[in-house]
Nucleic acid binder design. Structure first.
Lengths: 109, 109
DNA sequence: ACATAAGTTTCCATATATAGAAACATTTGA
DNA sequence: TCAAATGTTTCTATATATGGAAACTTATGT
């Protein structure tokens, strides 16, 4: 913890490990399975914790109430990309994404 | 092209390579630099092209007009996570993301 | 050059995300 | 146990994303 390296990329699992500890394989697998955009709220929370910020402090950085942050962390499915970017920008974190195409489910014409 | 492998993960660059051809190094670098959520619209477009679908056809899959798809592809900054998931689900593609934290910019207390 | 397909834009209505404020609940440390 | 800090929920208002319809522009092929 508190690594001094320039950059590091973390998966949700790594963040989870840091803040809620190593979880049993059951829960662990469930999280990996769920690693889609649904889980974005937990990412926000994890990164915020990593920065040692309260919801109120993060809110101040962005310019919103702590209740906003709470809502984002709990119900991140209904969130705008603009908001997501705003939050992670305040947290000095970049969010990247990739697309995984499963051709098996798709008829190749 | 038209690989039969089960899954494959593509970056925006790979999708670009497929559909607008190898671009000059200048433009190429710009895209890599921009690989944040801003560029999501291009992702949608690229995956749609990969599936050989028109905007109208993709719209039918989801249940919206082609104009909706056009809007999403052009102005993806103001898009809801729910919508993003809906689109990629129709395209049989999973979207994943990761967080990159640059500690250099952040004071470690 | 023309016709058709594909993509874009505009106008409009509706649903929903964003936001603050304050009450409420939960967690934390003394 | 208690008080303070932290997080959550509810209520309200406003901004904006979603959506259809139709006009419009831009490819595409013959």
């Amino acid at each position: 913890m508190e690594t001094k390296g320039k950059n590091r990329t973390m998966t949700l699992d790594q963040l989870k490990d840091k803040h809620i500890g190593e979880v049993g394989t059951d829960n662990r697998d469930k999280y990996e399975f769920d690693l889609k955009l649904d889980v974005l709220g937990e990412m926000i929370k994890s990164v915020r914790k990593d920065r040692h910020l309260t919801q109120e402090q993060l809110g101040e950085l962005i310019g919103v109430q702590k209740s906003q942050i709470s809502k984002l962390e709990r119900n991140a499915k209904n969130v705008t990309v603009e908001t997501i970017l705003k939050v992670f920008r305040a947290l000095k974190a970049n969010i990247k994404f990739s697309i995984e195409m499963n051709d098996a489910d798709y008829k190749v014409a």
